[in-house]
Design a protein around this nucleic acid. Structure first.
Lengths: 218, 218
DNA sequence: AATATAATTTAGACAAGTCTAAAAATAGGA
DNA sequence: TCCTATTTTTAGACTTGTCTAAATTATATT
């Protein structure tokens, strides 16, 4: 249907649209795709010709309905494969991204529907991100950043914002994992750090970390 | 490491080397790859430059040691994925080839070793073909064509030579599957057909079929 | 051994996706 | 508003893998 490159662009635009509500700029897309702005312009024209994006010169791009559906389908595949790699093949959550980047481009509807069934229709991938269902519907977010959690309140780790290998390794090293309960003991105003309790261990956490960890409350 | 196209050529040369012991001809490779002879020549030059094949103009190609190892690694991946699709995801054996053609090019050593372990280190894929182990060793063949089986002798179906969808469908329709015991009741000399017994059913089989079905004896 | 036919290679072109360098458009500050 | 800095687009080139058409080499037949 669509090429590997086209799918990757659609995915990147989808993710960037959260921050660029009025349209994703060429430079932002170039940085996300680790390529040059001129290459982005070329590809945008192609996507536009295929009715996958809406584009007016110098005004940035936005996904069309078709483009959004396609992007969500790729994201669905990516997250299902990540779940498979962790739950069935015993990978760590910081090892799966690059492999899923390849697997997400395999073309077979039946493969994905059977995989979904085999995995028990999981709702979230190992990083806590929702897995779209076959109709493209996401589970609702219902999560806040740890940094937004008030003193003395508690919640459960449900996801990470930054899923870089370094950050995931840091979390593992400090025994922070999805599903674990976390309680805010103290918040320092001057540097934004906080003291938290996780499995009876007190831990001081920087603002950078608390800004990258999602918590489900109540 | 190597491109998708390069891997496909190596795999094709590997398979053709069984019939073309002295070197695989350009035309044979072109037919196998469903491309033109001139494209094959171009690619062979590239493979030769990468020390994957031995090539002298007009003399056909043969895999180098490196080329053979690479081809076997791709075949290992293909067959492990086929096994996964049938045994874990519930696919029929005639549906898996095209999907495995895509999955075989995913690059990750750990993915394959973990998949192998998850599947219980299977020795044969759903078509009865041996799955090379991590060192590239194949299980020994020990099989003959049904057409070579003598009257009154019996054996077990272990594989197919032609794994076209049509042929696999035909086998399913006639209740012939891998692992089933088959006995030759009669052989007709004039048309090569034979009467066989499979699960208490008598069945007349043409020579074309018996030439495409592998049997393990004793 | 000469010649016709078949197989193979070469030459030049094309599409996809990328790049560099230059041109054009936009945005922000005086 | 005008000018400058930034962003974006265009033009032309390159790589990979493919193609057609023509040239070359090998094979087979007499």
């Amino acid at each position: 249907m669509f090429s590997l490159s086209e799918e990757n662009y659609l995915k990147a635009i989808f993710h960037l649209e959260r921050s660029y509500k009025t349209g994703v700029s060429t430079n932002a897309l170039a940085e996300e795709m680790e390529t040059k702005a001129s290459s982005v312009t070329d590809m945008i024209k192609k996507l536009s010709g295929k009715k996958l994006v809406n584009y007016r010169k110098y005004q940035g791009v936005r996904l069309s309905e078709l483009g959004r559906e396609t992007a969500i389908e790729v994201i669905r595949k990516h997250r299902l494969w990540e779940y498979f790699l962790v739950e069935k093949l015993g990978f760590q959550w910081d090892e799966v991204h690059d492999i899923a980047e390849q697997l997400e481009h395999i073309k077979s509807e039946k493969l994905i529907s059977q995989l979904d069934k085999f995995l028990g229709f999981p709702k979230r991938d190992p990083h806590g991100d929702p897995i779209p269902d076959a109709q493209g519907k996401f589970a609702v977010a219902n999560k806040i950043l740890l940094s937004e959690l008030e003193k003395e309140k508690m919640g459960i780790c449900v996801g990470v914002k930054d899923s870089s290998v370094d950050f995931l390794r840091f979390l593992d090293k400090n025994n922070i994992a999805l599903g674990k309960e976390i309680k805010v003991l103290e918040k320092e105003t001057f540097d934004g750090s906080m003291l938290v309790l996780i499995e009876n261990n007190e831990l001081r956490i920087s603002q950078i970390v608390s800004n990258n960890l999602y918590i489900k409350t109540n």
